[in-house]
């Protein structure tokens, strides 16, 4: 398995380089270093000297990809792309274009993102699987039909509606929890109740339907019939056998997102005032802060690759027939 993991990590290198190149190209197609300088220096009374100074200080006065004026390897090395990208592979994110330390920001923002995303993920997974199993149990009954209609209706509603509706009902009309805000420690629980509730409810429709489909497919298999024939109760069949055998598709969807939970959610964090990572990238794009954009895209890619590797590993835990070689 170790050899497999090493091989997968090596495969990740060209992917990360590719992601970097694409990010770089897309960013600089839209923004030039001069534009970035103007954005950071403000629109009032900016002089060409100030723009030049800003670029030189941050290394944006060099050619983008190829330095024809340099000699030898410096043709590649003395470029914006090389200087801004290589350190990422050592997880040295450097400073944002406004001077703040990016690693410091990421570390500080990951906690709040996780405080929302992790409970939503865990509670949500448990709730969706349970609802799906119940619907599968009551398949082809009014409960199942009602559940499917409800799921379709819920998945058709925008996530924003759940947020605004939740805030209006729970916080404004019933005054039960704060509309928005965040605090660390036990005092912060009251701020998490509503976003977690909204996060879980918003995902009920799509996820429950998806898991129901998986369970129904599984329930049609021979081993389920055999289990029933042996007189096993339906609850036992579902939770003991069907659930266990449906783990592969469940894990495929679930484990891969675990590392990405750190990255947070833009809209949820924005509406609930959570100081997480969700808005960090979009704020950086708006501020034309390439240093942050490249760091966050790189981090997102690394976490996604990590998620895929974890998914593969998790297969071996739930299905002894699978070997990673």
């Amino acid at each position: 398995m170790i050899a497999y993991i090493i091989r997968r990590l090596l495969y990740a290198l060209p992917i990360l380089i590719g992601v970097n190149v694409i990010t770089f190209a897309l960013f600089f197609v839209v923004n030039s270093p001069d534009d970035m300088a103007r954005m950071h220096l403000g629109v009032k009374r900016v002089t060409p000297e100030a723009i030049q100074g800003w670029k030189a200080e941050r290394g944006y006065d060099q050619p983008l990809l190829w330095n024809s004026g340099a000699a030898g390897a410096d043709k590649v090395r003395k470029t914006i792309f090389f200087e801004k990208s290589v350190k990422l592979f050592a997880f040295d994110f450097g400073r944002a274009d406004d001077g703040r330390d990016i690693a410091y920001e990421i570390i500080n923002r990951m906690g709040p993102s996780l405080a929302i995303a992790l409970p939503v993920f865990l509670v949500g997974l448990a709730a969706y699987v349970t609802f799906a199993l119940l619907m599968a149990f009551f398949r082809a009954t009014y409960i199942d039909f009602t559940g499917v209609i409800l799921c379709v209706a819920m998945m058709s509603i925008s996530g924003l509606f759940y947020i605004i509706g939740g805030q209006y009902l729970v916080s404004k009309l019933w005054n039960l929890v704060p509309i928005s805000g965040y605090a660390q420690g036990a005092t912060g629980v009251k701020f998490l109740v509503l976003p977690v509730l909204v996060g879980v409810v918003a995902g009920v429709g799509a996820s429950t339907r998806w898991y129901r489909t998986i369970f129904l497919e599984e329930m049609g298999k021979d081993y389920v019939r055999t289990a029933r024939a042996k007189g096993m109760s339906e609850i036992r069949v579902l939770f003991r056998h069907v659930l266990q055998n449906a783990m592969i598709p469940i894990l495929t969807g679930a484990v891969v997102v675990i590392p990405l939970l750190f990255m947070g959610s833009l809209i949820t964090e924005s509406f609930f005032g959570i100081p997480g990572l969700g808005s960090y990238t979009i704020d950086a794009i708006n501020a034309q802060d390439f240093a942050v954009v490249r760091s966050m895209v790189f981090l997102g890619s690394v976490l996604y690759i990590l998620g895929l590797i974890l998914t593969d590993i998790s297969y071996t835990l739930v299905d002894p027939r699978i070997r990673l070689e």
């Binding site: 605004i164 805030q167 704060p178 509309i179 928005s180 805000g181 924005s270 509406f271 609930f272 005032g273």
Partner: peptide, 18 residues
């Protein structure tokens, strides 16, 4: 000074006296 990026929670908190 609390960061409020969205107008709806900000307005509702004003009406609640926060």
């Amino acid at each position: 000074f609390t960061l409020e990026k969205e107008g709806i929670p900000y307005w509702n908190k004003f009406l609640q006296g926060y």
